[in-house]
Design a binder for these strands. Structure first.
Lengths: 202, 202
DNA sequence: ACTCTACTTTACACCGTGTTTTTTATTTGA
DNA sequence: TCAAATAAAAAACACGGTGTAAAGTAGAGT
């Protein structure tokens, strides 16, 4: 996933690290779209032409910068066990809330009006694929689903993004564990359950 | 909501209409970000300075152009009746699927990587507010919710966007009515129901 | 110490933005 | 129908960001 970093000149490593740090800081400060290459290189204390020695454009820098974020997320997702719940009895969604809490400043911007559509959609696809993988781990024998699994995957991916958006917009009033439970329950048992309504017969 | 159009010079009306049409066509063709003012005025057969006589920038044109889309949506939402289902027995989500089907080319871009984060977030907020209003219409006496209603609203708003994304990305293989039912059921009864799983006791 | 190679500096052409001024065309309404 | 009002076109401008090139400098690797 990451580039080969071992045999890379220290200056190269340092410069790229400066650029990535600068981008992340600037995203938090002024939003992605408002950032110019000059802004990034100024912040990184690097000349503007140097930028182009490493990255084609702002988007390419963003994509590589995201790897740090993804590495954290993938490490957490790797801990998932079959069975729908994690080893400690928490729902798997907890990893998402913990991860987002870790990078709250970043996500607060990127999942807002000042964010990037491509990033939001990418997160959605990622979460949908995790959902599908998780279903296959929990039910290896297969299922006779009432609803196509990929629709459910997109639905739940969007639902999680929605809950995360609310959480980030409202200064994260509940801890990750509580959010994970609220989200899990209203998903597993349905929205009517979340509203406190007993479901009638079909 | 809309401007006063009656007393407006015909040339003004025509020019603005051309600009709005051009923007919408270009969004479908190349995505919002890739469009320049020059692109819009070329397509509209209008000089570039003229653009600035009417709109401050591309975003302002987008916002006014969206009113046509919103007018359609609001007309449909207005038809919602209290009770969770519409007069014909379809779930209220149906209006969203019908509306998106009407402007499918537009939404296919705007809810994709080539779209605009601000638009996606705006749709999310709109859907969340509709959800909350709908709950208040259906249960005017109030509810003792297990989950805060605004969290549920964001959750379901995101969920709907997720389902719509899947639908648009996959060439809309099911008609709006069927999508609405699939979406409604997996929301009301929960994801496990959608997967075909009978829920154990708590 | 010597050789690479990354970085800096300066410069340039290009493109999109936003505005101004002058001129032309069209609409309004008296 | 004609005069006054106003919208649009045309041409030009300053500005800022992009992407590249050429020359020189500094610091890494061996």
């Amino acid at each position: 996933m990451s580039e080969v970093v071992e045999k890379m000149d220290r200056r190269k490593q340092r410069t790229r690290q400066y650029l990535r740090d600068a981008l992340m800081a600037l995203i938090v400060e002024k939003g992605y779209e408002a950032i110019s290459i000059q802004d990034i290189t100024d912040r990184a204390n690097v000349s503007r032409p140097t930028f182009y020695l490493h990255y084609r454009d702002k988007e390419e820098l963003l994509l590589t910068s995201l790897e740090e974020v993804y590495d954290d997320l993938n490490a957490r997702v790797g801990e998932i066990t079959p069975g729908g719940m994690m080893a400690d009895g928490n729902p798997v969604e907890l990893v998402a809330f913990q991860h987002v809490a870790e990078f709250a400043d970043f996500y607060r911007v990127m999942l807002s009006s000042r964010g990037v559509a491509a990033f939001i959609i990418r997160v959605q696809h990622y979460l949908a694929s995790v959902f599908q993988q998780h279903v296959q781990i929990c039910f290896p024998a297969g299922l006779t689903s009432t609803v196509p699994i990929d629709i459910l995957a997109y639905r739940e991916a969007g639902a999680l993004i929605g809950t995360l958006s609310w959480w980030l917009e409202n200064e994260m009033p509940y801890p990750p564990t509580e959010m994970a439970h609220l989200h899990y329950q209203s998903g597993a048992k349905g929205v009517l359950w979340g509203l406190g309504i007993t479901l009638d017969a079909d």
